[in-house]
Nucleic acid binder design. Structure first.
Lengths: 161, 161
DNA sequence: GCAATTGGTGGATAATAGCAACTATTTTCG
DNA sequence: CGAAAATAGTTGCTATTATCCACCAATTGC
């Protein structure tokens, strides 16, 4: 007895992912994987790869000289210890530097370096472009729609107005 | 000379996150962190925490008895070696078991166990509820909208029709 | 029957995250 | 004023993950 076309056991085409089909968190989590990998590739060798942290930090320090680690930590959803190590790293790469705040000697103020500022310029080009490219199969207006909604979600999560 | 109200260096309220403001990937990546943490809390102690993998795997194995590791790996965006370890784990917890496929002795077929099926029942309740709750501040219709768009993105990424 | 492909395993390394404990300041307030 | 509480940041530890790569076995194509 011959086997019928040797069923490729379950063909991906038929697959339905159960309740996850209607679960927003599933899509966020999975797409996050894909988009993060793609982004990492584009940032290859740029001293700022892996993890949402570095990019946001770089831009914030560039935009708000003297900003404090804990403020950034809050915005990128990391705890202070993770933030500290992130800063160690970026300082090690010569992208930012820290000073003790004259206002409060427990606190630090972060400043961009020349190298950091230069990198920020590149980042401002690459990162939004990567996002647009990656999601290019989603029509522009839908992209904006999703973004508007997720922006509100983000702001709500971190407590921005 | 007194210091004015001791400026809390930069107040989160004033902060604007530069180009990331309009970068979809930023929101996906950041919200992913928040929603994943929240989900982990809700799954506390349930043998299936951390990482998109386990939940999807459990449901797929429950729905498609005999499904192959590599099919799941593809759907959850992991490579075969990561998938293998994930299965080791779940097998260790007695949630699924593997058999060598009679059709192709390189391949395996995955089957749910009783414990796994029981857990799947719980998961089907908890996971979608967690997502709805977490995003409850987004109006229902907008949630659906985002989901419809991201579903297409996901399907496109993994090559589903 | 040989070469190329596919499915899965195993190892090593590196990266991350999350906790908890600790120091130093600053703030609160009785 | 002075003790207690809160805040900012650091450090150490542990567990978990991810990635990459090489590897073996089976299968498929020609």
């Amino acid at each position: 007895m011959r086997k019928p076309p040797a069923r490729p056991p379950i063909v991906p085409e038929d697959i339905n992912i159960d309740v996850l089909e209607d679960t927003l968190s599933f899509y966020i989590r999975t797409i996050n994987l894909a988009v993060s990998r793609d982004l990492d590739e584009r940032l290859e060798g740029l001293d700022v790869a892996k993890g949402t942290g570095k990019i946001t930090t770089l831009l914030l320090v560039d935009d708000y000289p003297g900003i404090r680690p804990s403020v950034i930590a809050h915005l990128i959803l990391r705890d202070r210890s993770a933030m500290g190590r992130l800063i160690d790293q970026m300082e090690g790469h010569g992208l930012i530097r820290r000073e003790v705040s004259p206002d409060d000697s427990r606190a630090q103020e972060l400043y961009i370096t020349e190298a950091g500022a230069a990198l920020a310029v590149k980042i401002r080009e690459i990162v939004p472009k990567q996002s647009r490219d990656f999601f290019s199969f989603i029509p522009e207006d839908e992209q904006r729609l999703v973004m508007d909604i997720l922006r509100r979600a983000y702001r709500r999560i971190v407590g921005l107005p």
